[in-house]
Design a protein around this nucleic acid. Structure first.
Lengths: 196, 196
DNA sequence: TAAATATTTGACTGAGTGGTACACAAACCC
DNA sequence: GGGTTTGTGTACCACTCAGTCAAATATTTA
């Protein structure tokens, strides 16, 4: 094609990961380009040359975050254990994430979806696509459980998946305010207990 | 006490309501003092004289929002109808709020709790207190239902209340991304169906 | 009317914002 | 080596941010 120029001194992936930390801690608005530069190690010129704008960098961060979360969720939902245990594992993984960081920064995707609800089509689209894919996998897992007889067919897989998803995200909202791991685990048990 | 000076030309309540609209649309960070002044009709001096800082004004907004929501929730939970219908009414009221505004701004308290999760003790405290009070009233309503025989005592009121609350807030997260009223109503029916 | 007090106004501050311009550096191809 | 291309570092841009302040104004009490 064309001759090469000076090679980049960084890997895009590493920069996106570093930027992710900033957006995760501060949210979108409160993350300044200056801090983004400091934490990624890039100068402004490099950062803007490579990513175009704060918002485009943010888009890549959100896509990567969603992809990682989705990969992990799908892995958990595919484990060779009872479906109820897979759903419990998904809950517990989320709780571990919520309480892993000392300043309980929660879930980046949920945080920014709420922060920018109704004003950022990119965020709505990205989070919406993520949700749809996650839902499909949850429905599939529950359907497996119904077919194998593990789960009663009193409710449809679709109904149960919806209940799971709303409870799953509600839990994370509650975690941001109540900050109590044991309480979160109680909610998980209640939810699974009522669902099955 | 002391002699009066020039009287205020505004009612605090009206200013807080106007500021609420701004924070609701934009979130905390993205609401500028300038827009706050324009929409409240106050000059900067008056606003700072009366409320001290953007953050203190925000605190009053959040308190007022929570109080209004709590009053309404308690009213709904006290209606002389079956408990299941009260919980359904609470769900539907929330959905109506989420979809009332054309740019679906959602729930102010949830939005800012997520936006400022882990970085704003005032928000955590205010939302936490609100949640605790709401939970108490939901538990009381469900206990009524259990005692009257409307609800089976297969699960405790505490368990069911937790499931309701997580599903309730999860629904609002999902609403911010999927933007589909019918879908939200389906989730409500699924949740109530599985719960009872 | 005059003193005392509280509120309003809007210009102003210093720091910080996202983003740009451009000189310079480092690679490739001939 | 030149010529081209791309990346980097930094000074700089116009603008916005939250917050301040002194002067003007409106009220009550004396």
């Amino acid at each position: 094609m064309s001759t090469n120029g000076r090679p980049r001194e960084f890997k895009d992936e590493a920069v996106i990961d570093a930027a992710m930390e900033v957006f995760w801690e501060k949210g979108y608005e409160a993350s300044s380009t200056q801090e983004l530069c400091e934490r990624t190690g890039l100068g402004k010129g490099s950062l803007y040359n490579a990513f175009g704008s704060k918002h485009e960098l943010f888009e890549q961060v959100l896509r990567r975050y969603s992809q990682i979360g989705l990969d992990r969720s799908i892995e958990i939902l595919g484990r060779p254990i009872p479906v109820k245990e897979r759903l419990r594992a998904l809950f517990i993984w989320a709780i571990d994430m919520d309480f892993a960081d000392p300043n309980h920064r929660g879930c980046l995707a949920v945080n920014v979806s709420m922060e920018r609800a109704g004003r950022d089509p990119m965020v709505e689209r990205t989070f919406g696509e993520y949700l749809q894919t996650l839902e499909e996998h949850i429905i599939a897992a529950i359907e497996d459980g119904i077919q194998s007889g593990e789960i009663s067919h009193k409710h449809s897989a679709f109904q149960l998946a919806q209940l799971f998803l709303s409870s799953y995200y509600g839990l994370r909202v509650l975690n941001s305010a109540t900050l109590n791991r044991d309480r979160a685990l109680q909610i998980v048990e209640s939810t699974l207990d009522v669902m099955f």
